[in-house]
Design a protein around this nucleic acid. Structure first.
Lengths: 167, 167
DNA sequence: TAAGATTGATAGATCAATCTTG
DNA sequence: CAAGATTGATCTATCAATCTTA
């Protein structure tokens, strides 16, 4: 979790054999750009809504859910969070009035987590802030062709990290 | 901190005015690719060295330092960490034998943090793993031209988020 | 027994307050 | 007093163990 600068370098005093390569410079640039972008978007989000970008991401997931509700375990699967972490997260969201636990109709073992009206409103407001920030910091500096080209290149990387190695 | 998928979407049930845009799709792709890449590199690092990618990043910063040593506050400034967080981090690194505190020659208020021999060795080993992973997951899927083009596009984004707004 | 969810103990971060030295 | 570093209280995550229901 380095914020800026090179990730790999040649350091004479340590007689490192490690050198910067085309790939490592590319990775550094990728890392630095995304870290910085995220930092800016998080600052804007906090300044205008009092909400963290992480929390916005959670509300987004709930908003995306099929019937506006998810099982806690589903939420855990789509967030970088364990199940126990999710339990406590939901506790906090409930305490803040953004989310409610609904009993599950057919399976008594668990619940459904759903946005409250207040949660939906917070999400909508935050979404506008986030979208505006992205348009400003990604859309404005780039042309449409550059965005397309960027996505094309990123897809090649993503294919390379996909675990489609089965078979 | 969303791992995959779209960041912004149109959700009929909530009558959201938020829509995916060229920029938001690009941001999603960027976010997803970097998250996934990081996840893979962290797994490989942990499997082969038992070290977390975060810790590798910290050792890297120390290795980069001018005389192989930094003040804790300098370390805090180049890591996403507060000063108090740094104090505790250094405590742990010292306990693990990777780092040592040296008294500062001219300024008795503080110390210098430096890699131990063991720390240097761990760093070197981890660096090889990291560099190999980057070559495999970034270098291999892309051509040299694609890497150059990617860096060119990222620079445009970074310029857009740089706070060069002063004047 | 397996699956969903929660809880207790612990790790690592933050902020605000404090100690030490310049 | 200002700056470097640390500490205490608190927050939020993890893992392993546990409770409840299918």
């Amino acid at each position: 979790v380095i914020e800026q600068g090179n990730y790999i370098l040649y350091h004479p005093a340590m007689a490192l054999r490690l050198r910067t390569t085309e790939a490592s410079e590319t990775f550094s640039a990728l890392w630095a750009a995304v870290s910085r972008l995220n930092e800016i978007l998080a600052e804007e989000m906090y300044a205008e809504t009092g909400m963290s970008l992480e929390r916005y991401g959670i509300l987004l997931r709930l908003a995306q859910a099929e019937n506006g509700a998810m099982r806690p375990s589903e939420l855990a699967d789509c967030l970088p969070l364990t199940r126990s972490g999710t339990t406590r997260l939901v506790d906090r969201l409930v305490a803040d009035g953004l989310v409610e636990r609904r009993s599950h109709e057919t399976d008594g073992r668990g619940f459904l987590v759903a946005l409250t009206t207040e949660g939906e409103e917070s999400f909508r407001k935050a979404g506008r802030v986030h979208l505006r920030g992205i348009d400003e910091h990604v859309g404005e500096p780039l042309t449409e062709d550059e965005m397309k080209e960027l996505r094309r290149i990123l897809r090649k990387i993503s294919r390379g990290t996909d675990d489609l190695e089965a078979d």
